[in-house]
Write a protein that binds this DNA or RNA. Structure first.
Ligand code: FES
Ligand code: FES
Lengths: 156, 156
DNA sequence: CTAATATAGTACTAAAATAGTCCTATATAA
DNA sequence: TTATATAGGACTATTTTAGTACTATATTAG
């Protein structure tokens, strides 16, 4: 189904919540109450996001988490990477040399191509977009550096 | 990691192989030999692809599989859907009403947005692209029907 | 008509990834 | 010094995925 993990979904919910008050400190316990996600899970997600420098953490009493950057400076690709690791559609793209078919494989380069397209799409959406209500918002993505030689056949 | 399943990867390998001789019939046993993927697995993938009308199957002696359409008429989004089911990045997008946070969730619409962007990217790559060597090939995708109101912040 | 071949469909088992929980250590504030 | 809150890691349970096997059906050839 090509889906993000539940934890990543939680991460977007949590980040969107924090992004509403970007300058305040948010403790894990507060976020639990506001989002309905269980505390241990919230805690886990927050740690991962802090480790990836998407959030800054403050320990001790009155501690908590805050955005490391402005909402429009953190994008969905970064969030997914923080929770799930590097984005790569196939094993071959993330860990080189481990694929059995690699030597006889003609499609590796194409997956890299697809990866870039997907990554660009994810990169184009920031937390600022998540905070804003949907409405007539949109995304346009592209891989501007290269030019297609074959005709594209986009249909469905 | 936002990856496709191994079976989907096999599917692209197999389809790419078949697309080299689009007019011939390919038996599962032949494909096993040519791709190195185990027969039961090849068989499973082929059945799924036939069920999704990406391949046409012919039973009996001298039977086998062939592409249902021209290579440039089958895209990667269809292949993923055939193997893994509907593409949706979160549970919310594929099965409505089952998400606990749904009522208080502000980001559902945004995930739909992201889904569309990713889907468009995947839709833009066809089997014809997979058959062709990579080189300076490229993909440009977009969601032309809507216009972005906020500024997009694409960086990394 | 029969035998051989190849796919259809389904069910099952094993392996891997994910989700979720918990515990101990460390830092901070009052 | 105590209370609070995150850091880090380990662990278990659950779910998903991968892989296999078996029976039924269709087609061709003799
Ligand atoms: S390198 Fe692994 S399938 Fe191509
Ligand atoms: S509807 Fe499920 S997280 Fe938004």
């Amino acid at each position: 189904m090509l889906r993000v993990s539940k934890l990543t979904d939680y991460a977007t919910v949590i980040l969107t919540h924090i992004a509403h008050q970007p300058d305040e400190l948010h403790a894990a316990s507060d976020i639990t109450q506001d989002t309905g996600v269980a505390l241990p899970t919230v805690s886990k997600v927050l740690k991962l996001l802090a480790k990836a420098n998407i959030l800054i953490s403050y320990r001790g009493s009155k501690g908590g988490y805050a955005l490391a950057n402005k909402p429009n400076e953190t994008n969905v690709a970064e969030v997914i990477t923080a929770i799930e690791g590097p984005i790569g559609m196939t094993e071959c793209t993330t860990s080189d040399g481990t694929c059995e078919q690699e030597s006889s494989c003609e499609i590796k380069g194409n997956w890299n191509l697809i990866n870039r397209a997907v990554y660009t799409a994810l990169e184009a959406v920031t937390l600022a977009d998540m905070v804003a209500p949907v409405r007539q918002q949109a995304v346009t993505v592209g891989l501007p550096t290269v030019t297609k030689s074959n005709d594209l056949n986009v249909e469905n």
